[in-house]
């Protein structure tokens, strides 16, 4: 055994996200952890990744952390500054985006995402950010990766509002809606999930070091498919942690 590397749950999630990305892929990202994961992949095993932000930004190299996509800090040293039609239209709807990285208020057993409202859509509810480009990214990316905190209220059997479709109610429902792709991974701070090829139900793939199966299942609002043998998630390397802390998020804004 080598020296134990110390890391936070956020850093483990970012590293797990980065591992999902292959060199040369086009990645549509929102802010926060997906940005850290994508920059990490770009600085390690996948230097030729293309990063796309929906509002018209490609491959920025920010040196200050922004408050959101609309913050010019996030556009610094971009290769392209253009439009929604160019990015969400010509790149995403045109079928060129390999991976969409999405988060949300809640997701469910079939990887549907809600960013619109909590409560009863027909009665009393609290309204939030809505779709932005999330529905578009969930609909047209070749695959999507969902990053979400591991809490019972965030991992539900069925979300209260499908803002961005996963496999809808499972089986062939997504394909029948005319949608390609679908969620490939759900990364939480306790585990990584995939989806069963037939039923499309969320399936436990690995448990983060330090967590137990009981802990993972006891803090979810539904029961995922659990295979007989579930490995531990590979922990971050010292170099990956160093890059996140020193190069990508030195101010600790994303991870703080």
């Amino acid at each position: 055994m080598g020296t134990e590397v110390e890391y936070t749950p956020f850093e483990l999630m970012a590293v797990a996200g980065a591992r999902e990305l292959k060199n040369g892929e086009i990645v549509a990202v929102g802010l926060g952890l997906p940005v850290v994961a994508t920059f990490l992949a770009k600085r390690t095993h996948a230097p030729d990744i293309t990063i796309m932000f929906e509002l018209g930004v490609i491959d920025p190299e920010p040196i200050h952390t922004g408050v959101g996509l609309a913050d010019p800090r996030v556009w610094y040293r971009s290769k392209v500054l253009s439009t929604f039609v160019d990015m969400l239209g010509g790149v995403l709807h045109g079928g060129r985006v390999d991976v969409g990285f999405l988060g949300g208020l809640e997701t469910d057993a079939y990887g549907n995402l809600n960013t619109t409202l909590l409560g009863d859509p027909k009665g009393k509810f609290r309204h939030f950010v809505g779709s932005g480009g999330a529905n578009d990214i969930a609909s047209s990316s070749k695959r999507t990766i969902i990053i979400i905190r591991h809490e019972e209220r965030k991992l539900k059997e069925a979300v209260s509002f499908i803002t961005s479709p996963g496999y809808i109610r499972g089986g062939q429902e997504r394909a029948q809606a005319g949608l390609p792709g679908g969620p490939s991974r759900v990364i939480t701070d306790k585990a990584i999930f995939g989806f069963d090829p037939e039923s499309k139900r969320m399936t436990l793939l690995s448990i983060h070091p330090g967590c137990t199966l009981e802990d993972v299942l006891g803090t979810m609002g539904f029961k995922p498919i659990v295979p007989e043998h579930v490995p531990f998630t590979e922990p971050p390397t010292a170099e990956q942690v160093r890059i996140i802390r020193e190069e990508i998020d030195p101010e600790g804004i994303y991870s703080g």
């Binding site: 709807h93 619109t116 859509p121 609909s139 499908i162 949608l179």
Partner: peptide
């Protein structure tokens, strides 16, 4: 025509 919105509650609304 568009691929987005299908299968979502955004479209239902």
């Amino acid at each position: 025509t568009i691929r987005s919105l299908r299968g979502s509650d955004v479209l239902k609304h």
